[in-house]
Design a binder for these strands. Sequence first.
DNA 1: TCAATCCGTATC
DNA 2: ATACGGATTGAC
Length: 648
Amino acid sequence: MDVEVEFPVARVVVDTPLSHLDRLFDYAVPADLDDQVVPGSRVKVRFAGRLVAGFCVARVAASDHEGQLAPVAKAVSAEPVLSPQVFALARAVADRYAGTLSDILRLAVPPRQARVESAPVAARARGALAPQGEKEFSVPEVRACEPRRDTIASAWTDHPDAPGFLAALADGRPARAVWSALPPHDPARAVAQAVLAGLRAGRGAVVCVPDVRDVAHWDQTFTEVLGEGRHVTLTGQQKPSARYRSFLALSRGQVQVVLGTRSAAFAPVRDLGLVAIWDDGDDLYADPHAPYPHAREVLLTRAHLEQTALLLGGYARTAEAQALLASGWARPLEPDTLTRREAWPRVAVVDPAADLGTPIRLPRTVVNAIRKADGPVLVQVPRRGYRPSLSCQGCRAKARCRACEGPLAQGASSGPLICRLCGEGVPRWVCPECGDARLRSGVIGHVRTAEEFARAFPDREVITSGGDHVRDLVDGDRALVLATPGGEPRVSGGYALVVLLDTGLMLARDDLRVIEEAHRRWFNAIASGRSVVAVGEAGLLQWLVRADPAGAARTQLAERSETKMPPVGRLVTVDGAPADLAVWATRPWTPATEVLGPVPLDADTERLVLRCPRAEGLTLARLLKVAQGERSAARLVPLRVRVDPPSF
DNA sequence: TCAATCCGTATC
DNA sequence: ATACGGATTGAC
């Protein structure tokens, strides 16, 4: 007979992609696995006849299940990798996005590395940097952290409400702020100081930045402000062992601060006191895998569930951030008007039509400004490549690939034509409409622009950064950098001049967020400059000229309010076969849900759009989940559902 | 009347 | 996916 165990039932999340099986299942814990199958541990269970992975989320005395319980087949490890907080967060995020818990847990809990789990404590805390068997590093006691007075609050001097916010963090109060960062202060330092304020009260922090370049830079600043070994980094590009090492250091409470990309939003920080996100408009925050959760939404959910403070900051402001202020859920952390206008560089607007130069894309004002610039110059070019868009010289029809109808582009000077969709090379192009073989450029990319600038400024060192070749850092006063948005290299001391080229082109796409995104790219670029010339229409650049990212966000939110678009309304896109969408188009959703479409996407896919008031968003997500569940139960593939897609 | 097979459904 | 239960079918 079995030895009696106190809580003989394990509640298990089973790793299955099937929507209708997204709930807990009870298993009997055999006596010999009693001390291994702890809440949060990984298990293997027999599920529908096969051995599948799962997490034990609780041990209970009895099960509601009528029938016989199957035993837990295997305890993978006794390491409690799924904390109750992260479990609750994953559940809430899955529910918001009409996705499954399993899909979220794949993001939240990195794959196990048995060797890392059993590694000695000292090596573990220092990460892969510590060579085995060499110098031993001690793990600093976070609670005994000494304040570093030299750095306290210095990065926050421009923000009158910052002392109150930092005081709240030090008291462990859940203050929530939307922060308008000002150049030239390093935002990493400001965030690190906020983290330090909470850390001294024993509270941990999650800090998300858009990409690994940012992580690398912020990492240094965090080490300066917090001290050695007080934080770990977590990114999707780390080796599995490095990632798991950081994860375990947090989960075991050896380190309480994590700095990372979107994958850090779920990190198991102990006694979480602050979640922070920088530049939340960056599309890298949207996870590309179903159910496509956005790191900002994950962190907002987390701040709510765990009652933590929130710091949402950037040079620009998203409509989502503005909505948090409008509802009163968060408070602004903003400089006064005078400070703001003095801190941002002055922006001179050049109308390209009224100020023609040679070549045509180089207005005289820009030429003169670059000649006068005393130091490195950054030129932001909206499109990457050489000639990213081509059309027929004879009839102006867009040049398209013969195989797939994709747009043709030229990758380099006198290089071949390449289809941007299928990558197929086109040796000799002839217009199918009029037979003309001559091509004209619709749009000029950053590489071609660099050629033009190199001719115009022979005394400058012309550097390109963008696409696959992003330069992290440049130096030298003669540097003239042609960069695409987001690919701007850092330069010590900042740029003497920032030129925003073809600003109208940034608004040429047809998308919900074009204006917001354009402002984000512009404000991010000019934040590193001492003076700015923007080529474009004055009316569209007014918020830039006024140095008022908040004003731009208010306008955007007002517009979303009128059109009932996110974040004011909730928008869902459903992609799938026409027959499947026809069924969903007539399903009863929430009372106020509008059904739009379906519209064709490509040969055999259509898109259905559902829109409802924000208040009904969770209910709509639940109904979508039920609909997906019916499909998975009928052994049909799920339809692609995106709740509040970042671009629409 | 009973076993072999089919189909639908739950998966602890 | 697979395993199980209930229904259906076919042979004696």
